[in-house]
């Protein structure tokens, strides 16, 4: 069934239609959350939370954007809220372990965990989230401003600053060796 019809049915209380929407968007949402969290467990938990919020707020969904876009907005806000609540020091070790696990999984699937991914991992969320939304998912600055609830000008400056930071981090590598993949420690 077409997405608009599914959304319409889901808003009328059709659980089957909503389940179909969730099932279709699940891989997209999970992969997006993986890029934010760099932790499969956390990404799965946030995906569940996103679906819970979506069920709660479904009557408010106007259908002007794609359903997956709406889910990404919810997921981004949940992730940023979670980061605000977390105590950094306690979660630092956990985060390191998650990243190592992801690196291992990426490399065992014959894909390189390259220096760009390393640089993205080191980047602060305030900069990483707008970059991913803008350049990988193609959202406009206005849309990102709406998702993160910050002014459009701030989004532009964060994207610019983030790109500059990544360029700086990659520069010594570009000038020196050209290795793409880092060995696992």
């Amino acid at each position: 069934m077409e997405e608009k019809k599914l959304v319409k049915a889901a808003k009328k209380g059709d659980d089957e239609a909503l389940a179909e929407l969730f099932q279709v968007t699940y891989p997209f949402l999970l992969k997006y959350l993986l890029k934010l969290t760099f932790s499969l467990q956390n990404a799965e938990d946030l995906a569940q939370e996103t679906f819970s919020k979506a069920i709660e707020n479904l009557p408010k969904f106007k259908g002007t954007s794609k359903f997956s876009t709406w889910l990404i907005s919810i997921a981004t806000r949940l992730y940023l809220d979670q980061k605000r609540k977390q105590k950094r020091e306690i979660n630092w070790l956990k985060q390191e372990q998650s990243v190592r696990k992801l690196k291992w999984e990426t490399q065992s699937n014959n894909q390189a965990w390259d220096d760009v991914m390393e640089a993205l991992d080191h980047l602060n969320d305030d900069l990483r989230v707008p970059i991913i939304l803008k350049h990988y998912y193609g959202f406009s600055y206005e849309e990102i401003a709406g998702i993160i609830k910050i002014p459009e000008g701030t989004v532009k400056s964060r994207v610019h600053k983030g790109i500059k930071t990544i360029r700086k981090e990659l520069k010594p590598i570009d000038e020196g060796s050209t290795s793409l993949s880092k060995p696992l420690i």
Binding site: T106, V116, M117, L120
Partner: peptide
């Protein structure tokens, strides 16, 4: 960035 994320 896009290439790396695509590989990811």
């Amino acid at each position: 960035i896009n290439k790396s994320l695509e590989n990811f």
